[in-house]
Nucleic acid binder design. Structure first.
Length: 281
DNA sequence: CGGGACGCCTGTGAGC
DNA sequence: TGCTCACAGGCGTCCC
């Protein structure tokens, strides 16, 4: 679920309402991927700043009572996580379900993390540039919409990589944001075979792939992301992108462009979907 | 150092 | 119906 569009849609749903809100309590359920890293009580009274995104992480800066910087919270939705912003007092939030593992109660409402598989995380860090945040973000590549990521830069980065282009997109150390769905869809849109070695992409094809990646992510963002099982935005609204996926999860189906058959292969333990007719090495 | 496999955890759907 | 098995959108860590 949560690839860049889903995380960004989530961010857009919570950033405005939560900015300036005061933390009243933090309740934790079952353990997530990593421990919080500080006593929940220590966050009470802090004021939430502007929530930002880096890759698939959300950063929620916190300010202390006297405006002193007080670090922040790094959120990750993992494979099955979603955030819901529940109405503030006088409304009492419904009791947490079995997969609700975080309730961040604030003056602007309760931010609730639901994550059945618990690959997600909530981690406190003294700053974005301080551990553990710095360590987690250290290996991330360019943001896909970063103007500094020119076709030339993208091509140069790909030329240093010998693995299949699909795996390189997924790895996130060249460009962040594409998970399995959007990596497959962007490659289809660009007409590039997922098994092509990254260093074998010509400059024009690299440029085309970058453009396809951007348009794919932008389109998904516009549609509120993809909902394959249970993703929803901060207001509980499902995404709509999955219904227009050209290849993802469509093995055996008819390619919408050439009427050939969509194939499924496995690369690096992950399923890859592509159209052999439209995507060339 | 790059690249690939593993494992974290639970739910779902297919097949028997 | 009920069981088992494969598989699922991410990513840090380990090993070669």
């Amino acid at each position: 679920m949560p690839e860049l569009p889903e995380v960004e849609v989530t961010r857009q749903g919570i950033a405005g309402p939560l900015e300036g809100a005061r933390i009243e309590a933090l309740h934790l359920g079952k353990p997530l991927r990593w421990p919080l890293g500080c006593a929940p009580q220590r966050l009470v009274g802090a004021t939430i700043g502007e929530v930002t995104r880096r890759g698939k992480y959300l950063w929620m800066p916190l300010a202390g009572e006297q405006g002193r910087p007080q670090g922040g919270l790094l959120w990750h939705l993992g494979m099955s996580g979603s955030l819901a912003l529940l109405p503030p007092a006088p409304h009492e939030p419904p009791p947490p379900g079995p997969h609700d593992h975080v309730d961040l109660r604030t003056s602007a409402g309760t931010l609730r993390l639901n994550d059945p598989r618990r690959f997600g995380a909530l981690v406190y860090a003294p700053g974005l540039d301080r551990d553990p945040a710095a360590r987690l973000l250290a290996g991330l590549g360019h943001e896909p919409f970063d103007p500094g990521l020119t076709p030339e830069v993208f091509h140069a980065r790909l030329r240093a990589r010998r693995g299949p282009i699909k795996s390189v997109l997924l790895a996130g150390d060249v460009v962040v944001g594409a998970g399995n769905i959007y990596a497959c869809e962007a490659l289809f849109a660009a007409g590039i075979h997922p098994g092509l070695r990254a260093d074998r992409l010509s400059r024009p094809r690299a440029a085309r792939l970058l453009a396809s990646l951007r348009s794919t992510l932008a389109r998904a963002l516009l549609l509120g992301g993809s909902t394959l099982r249970d993703f929803s935005d901060a207001h509980g609204v499902a995404g709509a992108y999955q219904s227009e996926a050209a290849v993802y999860a469509r093995a055996g189906g008819r390619c919408r462009r050439c009427c050939g058959t969509v194939r499924r292969i496995v690369q690096g333990q992950r399923a890859t979907y592509f159209c052999p007719g439209c995507q060339k090495r």
